[in-house]
Amino acid sequence: MFSRVFTSSVARTATSSFAAVPRATPFVIRAAAAATPLRFYGAGPSPLSVAQVQERVLNVLKDFDKVDASKLTLDSHFITDLGLDSLDQVEITIAIEEEFNIELSDRDADDILTPRAAADKVPCPFEAREMEARED
């Protein structure tokens, strides 16, 4: 019984910490942290914006040797516009997983057919931000 309570509370804190920090308002938290002497350990770096995620997805695709970078836009379809096949599509989704340090479900990964769809599927870019900071 204890374990059930424990896991549910962990789950709640996990979901609430992601839900409580919407993408658009990390600045409020930062301002609060600056104004008060308290330290907000959970505040950390702000999550990635949608535009940043999209840009990084496009960069991943540009590095993919079969993709013609001149044809690449946010809405170009992998199979009809870029001339890739289903195996390439799988490889792209895995490259995106590695870029953002996430693991997508099969169902989600099957839906990724444009860079925009890929950016929409990236759920929690906190770790990705950390990875970016480490690379610098």
Binding site: V90, I94, D110
Partner: peptide, 14 residues
């Protein structure tokens, strides 16, 4: 079948 093939391919590449 297609879904299963791609799922297997995904496991391998991962």
């Amino acid at each position: 079948a297609r879904r299963r093939v791609l799922s297997g391919y995904r496991d391998w590449i991962r």
